[in-house]
């Protein structure tokens, strides 16, 4: 597995005129032994890609829901290395691409080289590190490149035109377009300029653009997804899994809503 799995997944979606639905879950929330089941149930719900969060003591990009999930995972003794080892064990039973979302420090502690090697063995397609901007990317990106694992970059509402060009140049996997100034978590709404912003990035980028932060239901997912290549939903899914309502996740995915609507017609 590698960034080519992401290309393939986005290619298939495009051919079917569908948008990507990326589900974020916190690795080890509810115990690492449940990871396989969680990913398989997401897959069955129609999720296109899994973003697997690694718990960290100081997650400054995350809001309360993911912070709490991280604390639950940490109290179970979950570590980056354990997650990658478990992923390697179950990779043949998972068919959708998995990207890892982790803060920089656990990677640095494990060693960027070792992290890349373990990610490769685990079949990871891409890596998202929210506290590593372009300026600090090389140290983490270079070892991943050896295994063709995508280092996924961010564009935010505060990224200038020049900055957007810089980020797009050499981007891999997909662009993570942050929809709000703030942390992850459920929002009331989004600024009007978001949609033009997403379309502009999508026009300029060679890789797909997926929007995330604050997307909470199928309606928002559909509305935002219409202006880019897909959406990322995190906090809501994390909460549903924690509350034992995994079956409700499928109702967050716009295409399922269409199917359901057609079925009742």
């Amino acid at each position: 597995m590698s960034k080519f799995e992401l290309e393939k997944a986005f290619g298939t979606l495009k051919a079917q005129d569908e948008k990507a639905f990326i589900a974020y879950i916190m690795a080890g929330d509810g115990g690492l032994q449940n990871l396989k089941g969680q990913i398989q149930s997401l897959e069955a719900s129609g999720v296109s890609i899994v973003e697997l969060g690694i718990p960290f003591s100081d997650p400054v990009a995350d809001g309360p829901a993911i912070q709490a999930a991280g604390q639950r995972a940490l109290s179970q003794g979950v570590t980056l290395e354990k997650v990658l080892v478990e992923l390697a064990r179950i990779k043949h039973e998972v068919s959708i691409p998995v990207v890892i979302m982790t803060y920089a420090n656990p990677v640095l502690r494990l060693g960027a080289e070792r992290f890349a090697e373990l990610s490769h063995e685990a079949g990871v397609s891409g890596v998202i590190i929210p506290d590593v901007p372009l300026e600090e990317e090389r140290e983490f990106g270079a070892p991943l490149a050896k295994y063709d694992i995508a280092m996924i970059r961010f564009i935010t509402l505060t990224s200038s035109e020049a900055r957007i060009k810089e980020v797009i140049e050499g981007a891999e996997g997909f662009i993570y377009a942050v929809t709000v100034n703030g942390t992850t978590g459920v929002r009331e709404g989004f600024v009007d300029s978001l949609y033009d912003h997403l379309e502009k990035i999508s026009r300029e980028s060679d890789v797909p653009v997926c929007a995330g932060f604050g997307i909470n239901d199928a309606e928002q997912a559909e509305k935002i997804g219409a202006h880019c290549d897909g959406v990322i939903v995190g906090s809501r899914i994390v909460n549903l899994l924690h509350e034992g309502k995994a079956e409700e996740i499928q109702s967050l995915i716009p295409k399922n809503r269409d199917i359901a609507a057609n079925a009742t017609k």
Binding site: A104, P130, P133, E136, T156, T158, S159, R163
Partner: peptide, 9 residues
């Protein structure tokens, strides 16, 4: 500068 992209500007 290990910060989220939102802060880089």
């Amino acid at each position: 500068r290990y910060v989220p992209e939102t802060l880089m500007g």
